[in-house]
């Protein structure tokens, strides 16, 4: 059974159809990339899948169950987590606290235990913190654990978001341009990170502009253009698809030519 199934999904923003009757499936434990030119509807699709927008029509099924229109925190309970293209960081919290928040659903103590600071809360705080520091170490931010997140550089925040998303032990992780603004070395690190996450059995859905990264690690690629599916398949299939070359890669070639 597919991990995520999208059927005829559409959303209108005041007459403009940002995502148009989109259907696709994502198999468990794979890396699934969504690519397309700017404005193709990739981030909107993420927002639809993660419950931030309610679709105008269509359905989203997670593990075969319909989850269309469920709010994000319900989807989180079903093992879905994501990062954001234009960062959503808790600026006034430290890096460690950002990741600790990511373990919200793993924390089991209740309000009254918090209020009276029962020993269970102290122990839980320590456990959460320990796991958060491990994850920060995993993304290379252990040194900055107690730095206010608002003062970290952009590349570090990208990785902090990934650490926070991983903290929730997701079964499906959606990454919105994790390598944007990162240099070649950082991109390579993120590449390795994503692969290791997928090897751990997590389904990864990736929106990314870095074609090198996408072609390298994706099991499956979905190409969007103007909110519609342009092509779908393995890296090789997509690369050879004439429509894709015309609409997207060609465009990028133009851009690169203009750049050079």
């Amino acid at each position: 059974m597919s991990h995520l199934k999208v059927e005829g999904l559409s959303i209108d923003f005041g007459g403009l159809r940002a995502v148009d009757k989109l259907s696709f499936e994502i198999a468990p434990g794979t890396i699934h990339s969504i690519i397309g030119p700017n404005g193709a509807g990739k981030t909107t699709l993420f927002n639809l899948i993660t419950g931030i927008y309610a679709p105008t029509e269509g359905r989203v099924l997670l593990d075969g169950e319909e989850v269309t229109g469920l709010p994000p925190h319900h989807l989180a309970r079903r093992g879905m987590c994501r990062t954001f293209q234009n960062l959503q960081i808790f600026d006034r919290m430290t890096a460690a606290e950002n990741v600790m928040l990511g373990r919200h659903l793993q924390e089991t103590t209740g309000f009254f235990s918090h209020l009276f600071r029962l020993p269970a809360v102290v122990a839980e705080n320590a456990r959460t913190r320990e796991r958060a520091v491990q994850l920060l170490d995993h993304v290379g931010l252990a040194e900055q654990a107690d730095t206010p997140a608002g003062s970290l550089p952009y590349g570090a925040l990208k990785r902090l978001e990934i650490a926070r998303a991983l903290a929730g032990e997701p079964k499906m992780l959606l990454l919105d341009e994790p390598a944007a603004g990162c240099n070649a070395v950082e991109t390579q690190e993120i590449d390795a990170l994503i692969q290791s996450v997928a090897e751990g059995g997590v389904t990864v859905v990736l929106v990314e502009h870095d074609m090198h990264l996408v072609m390298n690690i994706s099991n499956h690629i979905l190409v969007l253009d103007y909110g519609k599916k342009l092509a779908e398949g393995t890296a090789e299939q997509v690369r050879r698809n004439p429509d894709v070359v015309a609409a997207y890669l060609g465009q990028q070639a133009d851009a690169e030519a203009a750049h050079a």
Partner: peptide, 30 residues
């Protein structure tokens, strides 16, 4: 009592939703 709340999952959830309601929700905060 208030300091207890602040240094607990409840306090972290409150501070998180102040900075980014959406990111807090995505992390499972109601």
């Amino acid at each position: 009592l208030t300091l207890n709340l602040i240094d607990s999952p409840t306090g972290r959830a409150l501070r998180a939703l102040h900075d980014s309601q959406i990111a807090a929700q995505v992390a499972g905060v109601d």
